[in-house]
């Protein structure tokens, strides 16, 4: 067993999940549709005032991603639980964290695809023009998504195997998401305003710290979650 074997395992799990997801496109379509729906509802709730829509855009985008993404995570274990494939997966030699890393990559791709639809739709619905600092915006989105998907994949390993999993996952996940939500929304808003206050950098670094802390922690303790 070496680090290279672990990496091979990570890739295998990720590819397996993505293939399963590709074969049944229904999940991706439904989740994306839900994200767009949440955006529409925000539009109705906020009223047609262009100015206030634009100001709320980043917050709405992130809540849409949170609400739709949370549905995806339970699915990512559901496939194996239904087929009874989790135990065989655990029986393979090698470290447990590579299972987590594989699922994390697959979920990242999944949520990334959802964002690929949801964000452009939000830009249109909320009258936001593509900002000059679009590269930095993409970076913020990526960092926020990594934080969200890390904890989502992690907690889903528990919630998907417990009673009332639909309630449990958001209950565990959303309080943990507050730094991500604040960091991503504040950084994006600041960047949209041309970063006049020069505070986007601080928020981006905070997102970075969050991602590093929870990636490391989740990888280290995942085996406690999956083994029982």
């Amino acid at each position: 067993m070496s680090w290279r074997d672990d990496w091979r395992r990570v890739r295998a799990v990720a590819l397996k999940d993505l293939t399963a997801e590709r074969r049944s496109k229904s999940g991706l379509n439904a989740v994306t549709f839900l994200g767009v729906l949440v955006l529409m509802l925000f539009g109705f709730a906020l009223g047609p005032d262009t100015e206030s829509l634009r100001e709320a855009a980043t917050g709405a985008i992130w809540l849409a991603i949170l609400f739709s993404g949370v549905l995806a995570f339970n699915r990512s274990y559901q496939l194996e639980l239904d087929g009874g494939a989790l135990e065989p997966l655990l029986l393979y030699p090698g470290s447990r964290w590579s299972i987590f890393a594989g699922k994390l990559l697959a979920n990242l791709a999944f949520v990334g695809l959802v964002e690929l639809i949801v964000i452009p739709v939000a830009l249109v619905l909320f009258h936001v023009s593509i900002p000059d600092a679009w590269a930095a915006q993409l970076g913020v989105t990526l960092l926020g998504t990594i934080g969200f998907v890390t904890l989502g994949t992690f907690y889903a390993a528990m919630s998907s195997r417990s009673r009332s999993r639909e309630v449990l996952l958001p209950l565990l996940l959303f309080p943990m998401m507050i730094p991500v939500l604040l960091g991503a929304v504040e950084a994006s808003t600041s960047l949209l305003e041309g970063n006049v206050m020069r505070d986007a950098g601080a928020w981006i670094r905070m997102l970075l710290v969050y991602d590093v802390v929870f990636l490391a922690a989740a990888l280290a303790v995942f085996e406690f979650v999956i083994e029982v």
Binding site: S95, G201, V212, A216
Partner: peptide, 30 residues
């Protein structure tokens, strides 16, 4: 390797917190 993963994770988390707490970010917050 399991121990190694633990130690590495602990060091990374501690380092990130040190950076956050010791004002590495806050210094240039306006």
């Amino acid at each position: 390797r399991r121990t190694a993963v633990f130690v590495i994770a602990g060091v990374i988390v501690a380092g990130a917190f040190a950076y956050l707490m010791l004002g590495g970010i806050e210094d240039n917050l306006e």
